[in-house]
Design a protein around this nucleic acid. Sequence first.
RNA 1: GCCGACAUGUCGGAAUUGGCAGACGAGGCAGACUCAAAAUCUGUUGUAGGCAACUACGUGUGGGUUCAAGUCCCACUGUCGGCACCA
Length: 802
Amino acid sequence: MKRPYDHNAIEEKWTKEWEIHPVNVDDGKKPKYYCLDMFPYPSGNGLHVGHWRGYVISDVWSRYKLMNGHYVIHPMGWDAFGLPAENYAIKTGKQPAVSTAENVANIKKQIKQIAAIYDWDMELNTTDPKFFKWTQWIFEKLFEKGLAYEKEMPINWCPSCKTGLANEEVVDGKCERCGADVTKKDLKQWMLKITAYADRLLDDLDKLDWPEKVKKMQTEWIGRSYGAEVDFPVDGRDEKITVYTTRPDTLYGATFMVLAPEHQLAASLATDETRQAVDDYITFAANKSNVDRLQNKEKTGVFTGSYAINPMNGKKIPIWLSDYVLADYGTGAIMCVPAHDDRDFEFATKFDIPIVQVIAKDGKAIENMTEAYTEASGTMINSGEWDGMESAVLKKEAPHMVEKKGIGRAKKNFKIRDWVFSRQRYWGEPIPVIHCPDCGDVLVPEEELPLTLPEVEHYEPTGTGESPLAAIESWVNCKCPKCGKDSKRETNTMPQWAGSSWYFLRYVDVNNDKELVSKEKADKYLPVDMYIGGVEHAVLHLLYSRFWTKFLYDIGVIGFDEPFHKLFNQGMITGKNGIKMSKSKGNVVSPDDLVRDYGCDSLRLYELFVGPPELDSEWDDRGIDGVYRFLSRFWNLVQENKDRDVKETPELIKTRHQLIDTISGRLEAFSLNTVISGFMEFNNRLSKLEGGVDKATLETFAVLLAPFAPHIAAEVWEELGHDGSVFDEKWPVADKAAIKDDTREIGVQVNGKVRGTVDIAVDASKDEAINAAKAAIADKLEGKTIVKEIYVPGKIINIVVK
RNA sequence: GCCGACAUGUCGGAAUUGGCAGACGAGGCAGACUCAAAAUCUGUUGUAGGCAACUACGUGUGGGUUCAAGUCCCACUGUCGGCACCA
């Protein structure tokens, strides 16, 4: 009996079936495969079709691995701390915990429409005390190891979010979240010493199967450089200024020094004549906002009136202040070699400071220098004992030479700064520290964790740098766990990145109340084999997770030191003209209606069909008709052939194996858009076969289609007379011998232009091929002289004529 | 400014190591079915000319290598992304 394609009925049926009989189960024998999605923030706005894409990609991959004999760990959870819930609470008075729970329920309903094989027994939520107990525990371990410390310092401050930000959260001088201009504010902050892991975070990138782009971004963010620290005595004083340089080879060319205006010695270097100007400049620099500093790169500066001694040649060189020197990189002071550095050249030219060339360009000194010569290649000149050396060689040796001389030492430096870990907000994990007047910072005892948030009436941030928690006296006031004295709790909370830095470890052991994760389960199921998510987390979440993983490895909690073996960044789905989907732009496409009208299977296929998964794609609603038609045609093909008992023919066998080969190859290459077009192509081909399609071919088609369109595949599998699940089928392997053609149609060119085609045996000799080709296009060769004949077997025949 | 990615019909996009450009789909056009429409099915669809079988042109621009270039090399333009005084 033929049935019409009723996607609603089919999908409802299988949703229920899979609730009762999940297709992905751990029998303890199958090898594991951990395929992880970046977990979502449960926003009140719900999902749009762009969110779907990543989840479809990961589910297709998970189901593919499943059919290759793996038990797939494929969990989902909620990254639920963060500002939107808190801001919503400020507006409505609704507790963040309550609104968050509502949003989770909503989004979960939407995510279930995808029909992914998520194991909901593993579901977790970063705001659940059972979860964040362990986030706090990790913080305590970091503290115990000296990797969490408090520091009074100017931090990035977002005046709109009224909270401090990590360097990673500042983009172009603006807040990564809200886009407000970031200012500086002096605040006592909790810091995590990610710099202690800088070398390992950099070196271990080699171990990872990640997109080069992300590796490069992390490499640059960590920013390791090798050079030397050199001490410059201050003339007439018993002090010295230490600089960091990557070009100690140019030391003889250092004709002045520049200190950051925030440098400790800056003010003290002023003389009576320069005091006013120096103080003014320091104030001017302090008031310059981050954005100004980025935008206006015209060099400014002031001469302090003091001099330093170049330790190589003993010459007196002036000491300047300028904000082009960064206070928190290197030593906050630099030696300036205007002849060989663009910035120093610009500064020296503007303020009329001598320029001394120390590396010969093209073997000679440059007359009338108009720009710095920044290459480290050439012979040293004007450099005393170093004259005649090659600068490239000297660059490497100089650090050790200055060390021997006792004027400096070899040194490597990093751009990455420690992670500002406190936020002056309510809706985050409380930092489990108690400030005791006698004992100082004391950790909340482990047995008292989790330290939960109190209910408050007002969620507004104070804006003064204190969290709303500071106003809850009953919560803030406590006894010191060590000495029992009246103490106060830390009122800052952790940034949103805290929970996401380790959540992937917890999925496999969500109910463990003794440990963060049992060693046994961690060893068995981790690390993550495939991690799928957007590229926007390249230096935030992905760097923090690597840091925490390495730390947990060091303290013996887990047995691996990289969390994500393979990373895939899916492209964004945008609205028309590449505009990001957002509520305010009014271009959000909701998956709900599409699922209702076309079905989950169609939307899954279309999410993949829109374009290459790694590239951004513009959403066009109309295209989904195409995949729906394809599914209907496939359905009809099955309906027409299932009771016909078609005998398999050589052609059918060949087509079947070509289908397996095509789909598997493209899937392995992660070319998911062409997998779908491949299905369409083969469906068209099979539909045109006069004699019908045999059962084995239909079965193979259903098995291959299963990871992509699970419902229709399961239904077809059943229609074809199977009791078991299509997902218990092994992924088929193509028989290469069956695919092989005896003859092949290849193009015949004359002078590189196609003039016809010819069918020739695959193993034809060159002469046979050429002769066949000539016969096929005899009229095109009339009156021409053949100069050359080219035959590339299986590809092309080209006849060159005059 | 530096680094990287990308540029193909009306549109989304295909095209192993250089080897028949435009697969697959959307949209358009024509037809079948229908009282009619939708749905479905069939055909057609890069541009220009003959308007049929053919010819010329055609993968951002200009040049080059090659029997052969979307693909490789050089120079440039545009779009997107990252970094941006890191000494």
